[in-house]
Design a protein around this nucleic acid. Structure first.
Length: 322
DNA sequence: AAAGGACCCAACCGCTTCGTG
DNA sequence: TCACGAAGCGGTTGGGTCCTT
C-alpha cells in the first residue's frame, strides 16, 4: 500500500514551465500570496500543475530577489565551510546565502565544487589543512602550480605538523576497528584555551595529545570543540546534548572526530582517525549557530574547524575529504 | 557539419518533519 | 497521544546545451 498521491497525477502537467504558466503563478502569488496552501493554489491560479511543482517553481525561480549566475568566492567559502560542518543540509546552507536556493547550491556543489575538491584531494591536499578549504580552491584556480602544500600548519600553533595523506574511509570500510568507548579528559583544563593537553582513552589505550583546534570546553564529561563560543557551536539550542568536533595531534598522527554525546560516548577508530559513532552523533545547528560558525571560521585566521564529519556523511563524501 | 559524449540544471520523487484536530 | 495532511527537504533524473572528435 503506497502513499496517497498529493495530486491527481493524470490531470497535472509535468515538465518545463512555459512563460504563460510562470506569469500566471507569479501574478497569482503577488496578488493573493500562497495562502499557506500550495495544494489548493494551482487550481485557484488556473494552473494544471501539482502544488508541489508550483511551490518549487516559485521558490527556485520566480520569487523576487533570486540570484542566478556565477557563485562568488565568498559564496564558495561559505558553502565549503558549511558543507564541511553540517553536510548536505542545503536549506540551511541556502539560508546563509541570500538569493540562492537550496536547489541551486546543491546543483553547484554536485557539478562544480565537488569536482574541484576531488581534484585537490587527488593532489594529496588534506582539507584539514589549516587554511580554509575555500582558500585551497582559490589556490587551485589562481596558481598554475600543481604542487600542494607539503605541510599542515596553523597560525595558532607555532610549529607546522606534517600530514600524511592517506585514503581513508569510514562507516563501511573493513579497515575500521570496532566501535570502542571514547573517554576524553583534559590534563590541563582551561576552557577555550589553545594549548591544554588532552587525554583520550580509546578502548584499552590512552593517548595524550594536543587539540589543534583552538576552542574546546570540558563540561559534564563532554569534550566540546569548535568555534569561538563553545556554546554556540557545539551544543543544541535546548542544551539537551553536546556535540563537538575536533582534531587532536597525538605524536605525528592527527585524529579527527566529530561529536561526543553525553550518554553514548562512542567513536569509530581507524588507523589514524577517530570518528564518532554515527548512530549516536547529532548535529543540530540553528541559524544563529550557523552564523556563529561562519563568523568563527572567517574571523579566526588560520583556524580550520571545517572539514569534519557529520552523521550523514556517506563513505563517498568522507573519502572525498581525503 | 554531424555525431556522440559530457555537463548542467530544472523538475520530479519520495521520505521526513511539522502542524492541527 | 495519535492520525492525518501539507510543507519541507534532499537525492535523483531527464532533457537541453555545450564541447570534442
Amino acid at each position: 500500500m503506497g502513499r496517497a498521491p498529493c495530486c491527481d497525477k493524470d490531470n497535472v502537467k509535468k515538465g518545463p514551465w512555459s512563460p504563460e504558466e510562470d506569469a500566471k503563478l507569479k501574478e497569482y502569488i503577488e496578488k493573493y500570496g500562497t495562502g499557506g496552501n500550495w495544494i489548493a493554489l494551482p487550481q485557484k491560479a488556473g494552473l494544471r500543475r501539482c502544488g508541489k511543482s508550483c511551490r518549487l517553481r516559485w521558490l527556485n525561480y520566480l520569487r523576487p530577489n533570486i540570484k542566478h549566475g556565477e557563485f562568488s568566492d565568498e559564496e564558495d567559502k561559505i558553502i565549503c565551510n558549511l558543507f564541511a560542518s553540517i553536510g548536505s543540509r542545503w536549506s540551511i546552507i541556502a539560508a546563509q546565502l541570500p538569493g540562492r536556493t537550496d536547489n541551486d547550491i546543491k546543483n553547484y556543489w554536485n557539478t562544480k565544487l565537488k569536482k574541484k575538491l576531488s581534484q585537490y584531494s587527488m593532489m594529496g591536499i588534506s582539507p584539514h589543512h589549516s587554511t580554509t578549504f575555500s582558500s585551497l580552491l582559490h589556490h587551485q584556480t589562481s596558481t598554475s602550480s600543481s604542487s600542494p602544500p607539503s605541510y599542515r600548519g596553523s597560525s595558532n600553533t607555532s610549529t607546522p605538523t606534517y600530514y600524511t595523506h592517506q585514503a581513508r574511509s569510514f562507516s563501511t570500510s573493513a579497515n575500521l576497528e570496532p566501535h570502542v568507548p571514547f573517554s576524553p579528559s583534559l590534563l590541563s583544563s582551561t576552557n577555550t584555551t589553545t594549548n591544554a593537553a588532552l587525554q583520550l582513552q580509546v578502548g584499552q589505550e590512552s593517548f595524550v595529545g594536543q587539540p589543534i583546534i583552538q576552542h574546546y570546553q570540558a563540561k559534564d564529561n563532554i569534550l566540546m570543540f569548535g568555534g569561538t563560543t563553545t556554546e554556540a557551536s557545539c551544543s543544541s539550542s535546548d542544551g539537551s546534548y553536546g556535540t563537538g568536533y575536533g582534531e587532536v595531534q597525538l605524536g605525528l598522527q592527527n585524529y579527527f572526530y566529530n561529536g561526543v554525546e553525553e550518554n553514548n560516548q562512542k567513536i569509530m577508530v581507524s588507523d589514524n582517525g577517530l570518528v564518532l559513532d554515527h548512530d549516536q552523533a547529532t548535529l543540530d545547528y540553528g541559524l544563529e549557530e550557523i552564523k556563529q560558525l561562519i563568523s568563527s571560521s572567517t574571523t579566526t585566521s588560520g583556524c580550520c574547524n571545517n572539514f569534519l564529519f557529520d552523521e550523514n556523511k556517506t563513505e563517498e563524501k568522507v573519502m572525498m575529504y581525503y
